[in-house]
Design a protein around this nucleic acid. Structure first.
Lengths: 200, 200
DNA sequence: TCATTTGATTATTGTAACAATAATCAAATG
DNA sequence: CATTTGATTATTGTTACAATAATCAAATGA
């Protein structure tokens, strides 16, 4: 027995998917890619499709800690700044702080890394900031770390894929995560324990 | 008339082009590339074929997103210094730093203030950061300053109205500028010259 | 004998063809 | 008037294909 199919159709002029509705928003061509590089290229294209910035290095320079650190105890006001004239020579301010003490746990295993770019903006690490990296600390998932990929240094949040391979997350939606692919020389140099910025 | 073709042939077992004799030396797959990026990808592949670069992953920073991404390779610990020949690179690597030297100009006129809230987020000053305030510096328009209004302390960007009266600008759209009205006790305590933050 | 020619064989590589999916439109429906 | 339904067209990954390139060995000829 035949099913009665109600007729709905007819001409549909102008119908159909519109041009440029693909994930790239433009036409594509086929290119032959060596098999060992398909993963890399696919990653790049993924980032491109999402209009994200694919950036690895955001490190300008790496400096070591001075051999002999200075100690300068300076008043710290946590809540209310008292009226009057707070100063370092004042003895009676309740709390004093030394920057080296505050930010550096162990001088021997610490170094400074100057950051460029906006890829870690949402983590409060901005262009031209200097971050403090401690090599002695074990990096955990979620930590901000200094890592190198084939010799390029980057500061990113450490994450892990379902398959266990590491992933480096920028803290800025405009940037795409960095996948640590098979065969790439990858190393974690330390955990970012602090950041400093100079305004003036 | 038929041409007489001399017979030369016969079985040619084991003949034929050998696998891996293509320009990449390996198998390939077809990938669809957006047209605007084909030139870039072709260039990468050309270089890869010629082995000018060993790993294509080094070149991810290629201008896919129309942003020139320069990669910085920093010779760090693995860098071998030729004895007796100090170079700029070596100086750079050997550079050492002290936080007090870097952030504090004059200890006697400097103090720290811990910031609460998000009103200066866009200036890179976040909740729980410690800012460095220098009382000895003259505050200019555009500086981030520690100011007091009727005894309330605040860190804001210093601006000026057309009529000359000062104005304190938060760096966060969710907050409104503070007008310094007539009769309000207003004082600038110093200029914010830096900020530090502890992550871990 | 041995270098060269010739045809057989097989991989590469760019393009074309294809099929499954996705997006979009408008007539028909309720 | 919102929803359903089928028509239409682009996207996208895969397969097919044809021209080229590489390689081998039999046949040739100096």
């Amino acid at each position: 027995m035949k099913k009665i199919v109600p007729i709905r159709g007819g001409k549909r002029v102008g119908a159909g998917r519109k041009s440029g509705t693909g994930k790239f928003g433009e036409k594509t061509t086929l290119i032959r890619i060596p098999e060992s590089q398909t993963a890399v290229i696919s990653n790049i294209l993924e980032a491109y499709a999402k209009r994200k910035i694919q950036e690895i290095s955001n490190v300008v320079s790496i400096d070591l800690v001075n051999k002999a650190l200075t100690k300068t105890k300076i008043p710290l006001f946590e809540h209310k700044v008292p009226a009057g004239l707070p100063s370092a020579v004042d003895d009676h301010v309740e709390k004093r702080m030394d920057l080296n003490d505050y930010l550096i746990r162990e001088a021997d295993t610490t170094f400074f890394v100057r950051i460029k770019g906006a890829s870690m903006d949402n983590a409060g690490i901005h262009d031209d900031d200097v971050v403090i990296v401690d090599r002695s600390q074990e990096a955990s998932i979620g930590d901000i770390v200094l890592a190198s990929l084939d010799g390029e240094f980057t500061v990113k949040t450490l994450a892990k894929n379902k398959n266990g391979s590491p992933r480096l997350l920028p803290a800025n939606e405009a940037f795409s995560p960095i996948e640590v692919l098979e065969g790439v020389q990858f190393e974690i140099w330390g955990v970012v324990t602090g950041a400093v910025r100079k305004f003036k």
